[in-house]
């Protein structure tokens, strides 16, 4: 994994160069380096998710605007990537693109070594049904059917994948244990659970199909301290078990404790990627500097009020 991190740091350098061409695929050296990322590693492990030159547009004709521009990212098994972006940065669109839920205008997406870019709707559905990639929303009520008991929610993806009912029921119990919830919750409806319990059930459901890649969109933003820590602990266990995680949030602070690497999206472009400690201690892009300097901290903030003001002026925010 260390090699991958180094390599991602190398891509940073390219991104930092002022006037670097927008499209990595138009820049042979950059494209080569990116493509070498997994190959150059000593480990034969290929990335669970490899996204290259991804571009997504929303709207039609005059209203058409670019939401993601040339996003290139790799995530290895057992790696946690924090994808940071604020409202309108395109971070949720990225997740939706990886799930085949939005039309991709350019670039490629490989999931677990399989190029899924040209998939049609039926192939995407089949891929999602296999459960290699799973998705957890900020609001667990959106991940869980309000009319299904916890047990039904947990067994449904297994039954769809062809597991028999008895095995699925046993798995449901294991899944609850894995997210540290008592088995008596199996008969409850989502509405009868607390917010923290609901989010843990949503994570358990996402784990039912043993995904290789889990995308989490603001999974802890709506939770209080104690529940946040619970979810973060579960994510760390998943990482240790080899699941690749994409932790999407507007708040660098909320991913700092679990991410290996962070990628910063600003207005649809990836402005910086690197190991989490490097990005926080020595952010290079002005937007990343503002992001780090804006995060509320208990101790000395990373930027003073006047530094923040200067960065905002520079970015024309």
């Amino acid at each position: 994994m260390s090699t991958i991190r180094q390599d991602s740091a190398a891509t940073d350098g390219i991104r930092q160069e002022p006037g670097a061409p927008d499209g990595l695929h138009q820049d042979p050296t950059a494209a080569d380096r990116v493509r070498q990322a997994p190959a150059a590693a000593d480990t034969p492990r290929r990335p669970v998710l490899a996204v290259s030159g991804l571009e997504v547009h929303h709207g039609l004709r005059r209203r058409r605007r670019r939401v993601l521009a040339d996003v290139t990212l790799d995530i290895a098994a057992g790696e946690t990537l924090g994808l940071i972006g604020e409202t309108g940065s395109g971070k949720s669109t990225f997740a939706r693109a990886v799930l085949g839920l939005v039309h991709v205008s350019a670039g490629s997406i490989s999931v677990d070594g399989e190029d899924v870019t040209g998939y049609n709707a039926r192939q995407w559905r089949a891929l999602r049904r296999r459960g290699v990639v799973q998705y957890v929303f900020q609001d667990p009520l959106r991940s869980l059917d309000p009319d299904l008991t916890v047990e039904d929610s947990l067994t449904e993806p297994l039954l769809l994948a062809g597991t028999d009912r008895r095995t699925a029921a046993g798995r449901a119990r294991d899944l609850l244990t894995r997210v540290r919830l008592p088995h008596e919750l199996l008969t409850r409806l989502p509405g009868e659970l607390s917010g923290g319990q609901r989010q843990r059930v949503a994570v358990a459901r996402a784990l039912a199909t043993e995904p290789r890649l889990l995308l989490l969109d603001e999974p802890v933003s709506a939770l209080d301290s104690a529940n946040r820590v619970h979810i973060l602990e579960i994510l760390k266990e998943l990482r240790a078990a080899g699941v690749a995680l994409v932790f999407i949030s507007h708040d660098l602070g909320s991913v700092a404790g679990v991410a290996d690497r962070v990628a910063v999206l600003h207005r649809g472009e990836l402005v910086e990627t690197g190991p989490v400690a490097d990005v926080i201690r020595a952010p290079r892009h002005p937007y990343t500097r503002l992001l780090v300097g804006s995060a509320p901290t208990l101790h000395t903030p990373a930027a003073s009020r006047s530094e923040r003001a200067a960065l905002r002026a520079q970015l024309a925010l």
Binding site: G253, G257, V258, I280, T297, L298, H299, T300
Partner: peptide, 16 residues
């Protein structure tokens, strides 16, 4: 405080 120091940005920044 622990939540910030173990999981937040404070992990990486110099203490006050």
């Amino acid at each position: 405080i622990d939540e910030h120091e173990s999981y937040g940005l404070d992990r990486f920044l110099a203490p006050r």
